[in-house]
Design a protein around this nucleic acid. Structure first.
Lengths: 353, 353
DNA sequence: CTGAAAGCGCTTACAG
DNA sequence: CTGAAAGCGCTTACAG
């Protein structure tokens, strides 16, 4: 009895149909049959080749519509060694600036009928390297990487275009904001407001970004110092995150030397926001007692209290240039620089006396 | 003369080698030859099948190492109708809570040797739908979606597991925080601090999350009202973003009724942070004059001034459960709920008299 | 346990 | 302009 039941059930749901109880999706062959043409012709219609007679094209399109045909991407990839995917590698999607960049990249990719694969390096260039290889294995159309750290990374010669964005990867082309000049704009701004005791919270010096922003700021301050009033500049180093900002600002503002400081220039908005929070904790008014500046202009910069004076990076433009370079000619230039823009908000004011 | 030169150049760089001047990557066939076995055996070693003699396995592994062999993913995908990719669809990667979730998902995927493809729906369920189809076309291993809005979405029956995370997609299984209970915890907290004039800033009511959090909060307040002191509750509706919080709080606090309010409970941290900023603009001290609460516990919640009292969502656990469900048995439960946790920080205090 | 062979669904020279 | 056919690099019954 029980055997009978189970046999009956088996008849109803044979194993093969359990695993996939929908019919197999139609292939190019089905379309060809239905339209009464060869598979080659279907493929040509698919590829939007012009050299197909309108009548045939029409029949093929109709057949595809009727069958709800969808091209098999794996088969195409196997033939062409290429898929419509852009690989994006970044240190941490949680970083608001990177997530803005990721959004822009995705937008650009969709605009070109591509998808994006996302991989986090967690700031580790070994992981980063393995992600690059993995993307290459997948025959992606191109790879965009926001590099973890400086390194001499270089994959064995490959057809796949690799470009770095914001933070340089090895000798690959780079699209980035002019960090040096942006930092100089901040220096000018603070100097113009009469600040002569300034602390600079630098980003990590094992990244080009960190070094460039610091150099841009410091050199500009030196320049101004040389031809005008002298500036006392203290420099501290951290990462780019909130925590570093908090930690460094706390240490800084508690020293006696720290009490003389009238402005803190931070190498990133996150650092600046961390500093903002410390200032508040210590009962300092921003900007009345102390001015604070950032870099990046993440969404949050306009929302913190007080709103942050910073350098705006044009993420949309950066992403667009990166993708242009991926899809563009072979003759890629080494580096493409985008201007940052000084955005003056409420966190800076004239230096207190 | 010029013809000669060009012929010479052509000889040096025939077109085919210009396009790809690296040698073709080795295939399973090359490995088989080198190891002196059949391609079938190589494939079996690749698949880590145990039923391969150690001696052969050894030879194959050696050959693969020497040739630096890498499996062709497209070919495998064509055969198996499956790739080691998880599709992740979310409304906006820029939303800090979603980006935290995305990070956790990617971590989980890597742990299972999968990659993630990212697609933004921009809160539009038509785009969302097309992304689902696109992922299905790619034969991804599974799809995780943070739904744009409520809708009765349902793809034609498919082998590919689809699960929704945080925000429900159609009738697909959902992994989410217990929003209702979380909101009730906030209600208890505020009531316990003596707040009797409360404003609730609700999230969009065309999302289940928005409705559940509101219901959880409102019902709990009603319950407390019924058996204790009465609470005056005002409800306003917005989106989940900073801007809505700012806008609603501003309107709210400027009314005469608004001045009686001693607490604002917001349906998200972003709304709460927007409200925080308005309170500050209007010269209100938080929490002395007014308490403000959020929901999510994004990184930022612990960094704003004052630090935000909120409900912590366990993003790692949410992501893990979602991936367990993707990779898990066929017998998926409709819904899996994770507890939220009340995190009391500095933005709430006893109600002013 | 292993090999020979079929076949996944496309694209693309090659003829005509 | 179109068709017939080869082949991309794998996996997997099927024998043995």
């Amino acid at each position: 009895m029980s055997a009978e039941v189970s046999a009956f059930e088996y008849r109803l749901y044979p194993l093969s149909s359990l695993k996939s109880n929908q019919k197999k999706p139609p292939t190019i062959k089905d379309v060809a049959e239905k339209a009464g043409v060869s598979v080659g012709t279907v493929s040509r219609v698919l590829a939007k080749e012009v050299a197909v007679k309108a009548a045939l094209r029409e029949r093929v399109n109709q057949a595809m519509a009727e069958l709800d045909y969808r091209v098999n991407i794996a088969a195409r990839a196997l033939r062409t060694n290429q898929i419509d995917v852009i690989g994006l590698i970044l240190p941490d999607i949680t970083n608001p600036f990177f997530s803005q960049l990721a959004k822009s990249i995705e937008l650009q990719a969709v605009k070109r009928d591509h998808s994006v694969m996302l991989a986090s390096s967690q700031g580790d260039s070994v992981i980063e390297r393995s992600h690059v290889r993995a993307f290459l294995d997948r025959s992606v159309r191109g790879i965009v990487v926001i590099a973890a750290t400086d390194n001499d990374f270089s994959e064995s010669q490959s057809d796949v275009p690799i470009v770095s964005l914001d933070r340089r990867l090895g000798r690959y082309p780079l699209i980035a904001t002019d960090h040096e000049r942006g930092a100089a704009l901040i220096a000018d701004h603070l100097y113009g407001l009469g600040h002569r005791h300034i602390a600079y919270i630098a980003g990590p010096q094992d990244t080009e970004v960190g070094r460039l922003r610091k150099a841009g700021f410091v050199n500009r301050i030196k320049h101004l110092s040389a031809k005008g009033e002298r500036v006392k500049l203290r420099i501290h180093h951290g990462k780019f995150d909130y925590g570093s900002g908090e930690q460094i600002a706390r240490k800084l503002l508690k020293t006696t030397a720290g009490t003389q400081i009238t402005a803190i220039a931070a190498a990133s908005d996150q650092l600046a926001i961390g500093a903002l929070r410390v200032a508040r904790d210590l009962g300092l008014q921003v900007p009345a007692d102390i001015s604070i500046t950032g870099f990046d202009d993440i969404d949050l910069a306009a929302l913190v209290v007080p709103r942050l004076t910073t350098i705006r990076q044009q993420t949309d433009l950066l992403a667009e240039c990166a993708m242009d370079m991926v899809f563009g000619s072979i003759n890629k230039s080494r580096i493409k620089t985008i201007e940052g823009e000084l955005v003056v908000r409420d966190s800076t004011a004239e230096a207190r006396q």
